[in-house]
Nucleic acid binder design. Structure first.
Lengths: 161, 161
DNA sequence: GAAAATAGTGGGTGGGCACCCACTATAGGG
DNA sequence: CCCTATAGTGGGTGCCCACCCACTATTTTC
């Protein structure tokens, strides 16, 4: 693909070099597209990004109180309540009162939830393959690594390291 | 900074590995943060991202009709009208009826606009230095290059290359 | 010169996301 | 016990963004 002569006139491309020189802009723009495509995939299941994050956290770290999820994911407690509520109604998670501290609601992912998560991961990988099409395997690894470190840096900055 | 022992318990960090394994997710998340910080900088001048894009396009490609900007930047014509209107009111651009085709409005960046653009570029670079703090100079170049190619791939995909 | 296409404008819509507050229930400290 | 802090919930707000439609002015086509 893309072996034809570039016809600059009817391409939506051709962003100003000034913008393309700004890594901040590139990161923002590619990130926006990636997010949008991922969100589209989730939307096909009636889900949003937070749903994926919550499922992943529960699968990785096991059942835990909402307060822990709030802390770990940096989501607003009130928003999490809604997400958990919806996931619970759909049978993807189970919520039980913690008997040692009855203020707390412990959330656990169900088998159905795990299956959903696996599917979502697949969709996310499909999006990645689409988005990172121009890169070969090693470049993808490099990009992933760099982004991971950038992300960790961000976490430290806002987390007050 | 960040020379102290990591206290995993009160960090907003610790996202689920499942998520950190998804490049799509990383790209989306770092992109979101980058965008937010850039938007913050622009907001200090009462501007939004499109304002920067429009100024850059005019500076790079010279005066042109709104339809060209629409085409080049992929912005909605109606939205561009508003952006151009605001930039015009603030004196950053000048809008004149094209005398050869009086339907068209030609937009040109003013001297003030160029000065503003220069300042905004500086702010964007500052954000970049903040966001890419964990990376050395060569890694930043690599990241920029990879993102640029990813971006071009996206443009081809949606532009029907 | 009538009809169809094009350029720009104004107004409005819907979705997502972050954020905040008031309130209930429970726990823990003195 | 009373007081304070914590956990969760429901409801609501504001921002941004993308998108769409109706309308006017102008140009192009036949």
């Amino acid at each position: 693909m893309a072996a034809m002569a570039p016809d600059t006139s009817d391409r939506p491309d051709g962003l100003p070099p000034t913008l393309l020189d700004l890594t901040t802009f590139l990161l923002a723009r590619t990130g926006r597209t990636a997010r949008a495509r991922l969100a589209d995939q989730l939307a096909e299941r009636g889900l949003r990004l937070w749903d994926l994050a919550v499922l992943a956290a529960l699968a990785d770290f096991g059942p835990q109180a909402q307060r822990d999820l709030v802390h770990r994911l940096g989501i607003d407690p009130s928003d999490l309540a809604k997400v958990a509520d919806q996931l619970g109604a759909a049978g993807y998670v189970e919520r039980t009162r913690d008997q040692r501290d009855r203020r707390r609601v412990s959330v656990a992912v169900t088998a159905t939830g795990r299956a959903l998560l696996a599917e979502l991961e697949g969709r996310a990988r499909a999006v990645r393959d689409e988005v990172l099409a121009p890169l070969d395997a090693e470049e993808r690894r490099t990009l992933h690594d760099l982004l991971l470190r950038v992300h960790q840096g961000m976490a430290e900055q806002s987390g007050g390291g």
